[in-house]
Design a protein around this nucleic acid. Structure first.
Lengths: 180, 180
DNA sequence: CTTGGGACATGATCGCTATCATGTCCGACG
DNA sequence: CGTCGGACATGATAGCGATCATGTCCCAAG
């Protein structure tokens, strides 16, 4: 039983998720320019949405983990404007885009649940923006703790550092400073 | 005629927006803990959503400008979890929350337009997160230009610096460097 | 029990940006 | 035409975090 199994959105969509896809690290789910036919939901692992730039460099647009929809905006587009690549062994399930849109039209409740999910992700993403616009590790950690209640236990500090976009060393130092 | 007048979401909601609110800088639209009765849409100016922290400091959660809904997540909550304060002379219109939810249930199209708007804002916010997790002005500017096509004209560089969360000086220097 | 790996921890150095200071350019306004 | 304000521009300094290096702790596998 994975965490997302109790997820409201997952519970709503589970009957629709008919096709399973398993990806190895580095494997692509779809490419920039492909026509959008299906909508994907991450069950396990991580998918990066990557946009390859004219200049040759690439830019990560979204890092979708378990419980997240991949490229929500694609529901309203005809072609993908970025690539989707697994960075871990990943499992996703998918629905036909037309079927999902049809269901939403037929049952407004599904639309509301979708909206709720989107609204919460937006709230989280906006918070993330505010955190990252702070310049010191101390300020970012303060904001994070205020929002999340308390410091996570040891063992999760490395990923916290990634979320705060600071080096693990800088985070350790800041945590150490607070103990004193 | 303001830009947002052609906005898809605005066109959809305009008949519902029955109440107008005008705010002076510093004036509050609602407070943390208030019951959510109405949903607000910014027509002109800027509203900051602010969360006051136990520690006494405050944290901006959203900066809503013209064309944006304030605290989308409040549509699905009973009480606000932050304050809304105008930072400029601001005009917002509002709908009763129950009326809006009723309309969405009655007409799935409205829900889809809402979802589309949310999905696009989420896409933008996620991009913003990626930009801010880059550490140099050069990298942030590269990403911004790649996403937006080209450098904005003079006169907008100060606000671009704010969006990139760097000092105006640092941005000037980077732009200057590229001319050489 | 030993060994190995991952996270935690901390010191030293370097580079980048914030900040402050100063100055130029240009458009608005009386 | 003068002046006033805002944005653009650039130099100097200082602070903060990235990075690299080194070491400890702890758990798990053999």
């Amino acid at each position: 039983m994975i965490a997302i199994m109790s997820d409201e959105l997952y519970l709503t969509l589970r009957d629709l998720l008919r096709r399973k896809h398993e990806l190895e690290p580095g494997e692509a789910l779809f490419h920039q320019g492909d026509t959008v036919r299906r909508v994907y939901f991450v069950i396990k692992g991580t998918i990066h949405l990557v946009r390859h730039q004219a200049s040759g460099t690439s830019l990560v647009i979204q890092r979708a983990g378990a419980g997240q929809i991949i490229a929500e905006a694609s529901l309203f587009a005809t072609k993908y404007h970025c690539h989707a690549v697994a960075v871990l062994p990943t499992v996703v399930w998918s629905v036909a885009k037309s079927e999902l849109l049809g269901r939403i039209s037929a049952d407004p409740n599904i639309g509301l649940i979708f909206m709720k999910t989107l609204a919460h992700e937006l709230q989280h993403s906006r918070f993330q923006v505010e955190v990252l616009s702070m310049k010191t590790v101390a300020a970012r950690l303060d904001a994070w703790i205020e929002w999340n209640g308390e410091l996570p236990p040891k063992g999760e500090w490395v990923s916290l550092a990634a979320e705060l976009a600071v080096s693990p060393e800088a985070l350790y130092r800041e945590i150490g400073r607070r103990r004193a």
